[in-house]
Simulated scan of single mutants.
Amino acid sequence: MPISEKFESVYSHEWEINFLQCTPNGLLKHTELCNLLQLTAGYHAEMGGLSFTDMQQHDQAWVLSRMRVEIDELPKWRDIVTVKTWIYDLQGSRSIRALEMYLGDKKIAGSETFWAVFNTKLRRPEALALPHEHFEKYPERRATVETFKKVDISREAALHSERTVVLSDLDIVFHANNVKYLEWCLDGIDPKPILKNKLASFDMNYMRELMLGDTVEINKGNDDGQDHFT
């Protein structure tokens, strides 16, 4: 697809929160927050000629590698929110993208994401084949207080559950979508703090893809009151 006449390097998209996206307390689910961020990034890429369809001409797609999300407040059912996004850096096979969610003029959440260009036939990273110079980069415009970081997987953890990847877990790249990992982890947390909106931030690292039929162990630990999963 050609670059849209409406393309801008900082993109905004409005969303209305519907009841299917909410937990029983009427607030947006954390997984749905991530879905809205991912969809907004996708729309921006599409307007700039870097959509999934564009990249599939070269057997490429964007896949999420790391993500940090910081939450001050969650929107509720029927709220209209605005998600803004821009790119910190894009070179070779990797891109760092920022996202913010606003309720009116108030910023309520921010995220920093690290994406890799993935060859969907060879199932490995490679350099982006499409031009991106028209995307202005904003390395100093930060969306989070802390940057994403490598999650320490050496911490003590015990087997919590097992999952087998099923059809509903898969996305268009034919692997488990990144939000599914978060969903599996949140299902292993005491729901009371979640429903009281006590989850202020989380970090995720994606180390390898999961395919249909793969069975994985989910291990859980707790350090200083913070849950962690592998």
Rank of each mutant, 00 (worst) to 15 (best):
D54W: 02
A61H: 02
T31D: 08
N35F: 12
R123L: 13
V151G: 02
A200H: 13
V81D: 02
E46F: 06
G42D: 04
Q60T: 00
V83L: 14
L27R: 14
H228D: 08
E70H: 13
F7C: 07
V69W: 08
T215L: 07
G225W: 07
T53H: 11
L199M: 09
A109W: 00
S161T: 10
S161L: 09
D224C: 04
D72S: 15
V81E: 01
A129K: 05
D59H: 11
L37I: 15
S51V: 02
V151D: 02
C22Q: 03
H13Q: 10
N222G: 03
F229P: 01
A129C: 03
V179D: 04
F174Y: 15
F19L: 00
L182D: 02
L33W: 04
A109L: 06
E156S: 15
K76R: 06
E183Q: 13
L99R: 05
G48F: 04
M101H: 05
E126M: 03
A41E: 06
V63P: 11
N178V: 03
E162H: 10
Y102R: 09
D223A: 11
D169G: 10
I17E: 01
D223P: 00
I172Q: 09
L199D: 11
K180P: 04
L122A: 14
D203M: 03
V151P: 03
E156D: 15
E100D: 03
H134M: 00
L33N: 09
E162N: 15
L130D: 00
R78T: 08
L210I: 08
H13T: 10
F19T: 01
N197W: 05
K29D: 15
E46D: 13
R124H: 05
T144G: 03
T53Q: 13
W184A: 05
K121F: 04
G188P: 10
R163G: 02
K137Y: 05
E32H: 05
R141N: 14
V145N: 07
N25F: 02
L170P: 13
M204V: 14
M204F: 08
I71R: 04
Q60E: 06
K137I: 07
M211F: 13
T215V: 11
N222H: 07
V10K: 06
A127E: 02
M67E: 09
T31V: 06
H160C: 12
W62M: 01
M211R: 14
Y138G: 02
R66Q: 12
K150L: 01
K180D: 02
R78M: 11
K6D: 15
L159Q: 03
Y11K: 03
A129E: 05
S65W: 02
P2V: 07
E46H: 05
A41T: 06
T53M: 14
P2I: 09
R208C: 12
R155L: 11
